[in-house]
Nucleic acid binder design. Structure first.
Length: 193
DNA sequence: GCCAACGTTGGC
DNA sequence: GCCAACGTTGGC
């Protein structure tokens, strides 16, 4: 059984969870979920709808208290927007059993569940998005983020982040914040109509 | 809206 | 158990 905690219980593997902040309709349901939506939650948010085995395995490896990045995909710009915390370990994702649900899976049933979800809560939002272009700029050969699962397996909606990658991205976020509001590419704030 | 990357499915 | 066809993700 793989673990992401060392002997003292300190977190060794961090996470990256993707969601789409912009409205998109699946079976007539808006599947958008942004970090602002998470910040507004008053109880743990079940991270449902993950229908990829690798992403599911990553969620099952999460432990209570683990931290992860919140990533906005299909966004302007796409990138890491903040931090969340795992507060409920993996349990069966009930949405897979609901034919009305956008992520219904006829092959999953209660006797033999296929999909799981964790519960997460908001930790913080970065002043500025650490956008994908920035991440890629540090992921060139020999770069600190070379090998980040976000880039090596771009279609995984729940990926792993090594501790050194975690710290490096946090540093990028910090540098962007202290760099002031002008200049730079992603001075997106809450300026959406 | 296009399309590349890549995981999954199913026929054999 | 191989592998071609297919479906999905997600950047652009």
């Amino acid at each position: 059984m793989l673990t992401n905690r060392d002997a003292n219980g300190a977190q060794e593997t961090f996470w990256l969870l993707k969601a789409e902040p912009l409205p998109r309709y699946e079976k007539g349901v808006n599947v958008a979920f942004s970090i602002d939506d998470l910040a507004a939650c008053t109880r743990p948010e079940p991270w449902t709808g993950v229908r990829n085995p690798q992403a599911r395995n990553n969620m099952q490896a999460m432990r209570h208290g683990d931290l992860g990045f919140f990533y906005h995909s299909n966004a302007k710009p796409s990138g890491i927007v903040g931090i969340l915390r795992v507060v409920e370990e993996a349990r069966v994702d009930e949405t897979a059993f609901d034919p009305q649900d956008p992520y219904y899976d006829a092959k999953s049933n209660r006797e033999k569940p296929k999909w799981y979800c964790v519960g997460v809560e908001f930790v913080r939002k970065f002043d500025k998005v650490v956008d994908l272009a920035t991440i890629k700029a540090h992921a060139a050969k020999g770069g600190s983020l070379e090998g980040m699962q976000l880039l090596t397996n771009g279609r995984l909606s729940v990926s792993r982040v090594r501790m050194d990658e975690w710290e490096y991205v946090l540093d990028l976020a910090k540098r962007q914040e202290s760099a002031g509001t002008e200049e730079d590419t992603g001075q997106e704030k809450d300026t959406v109509p």
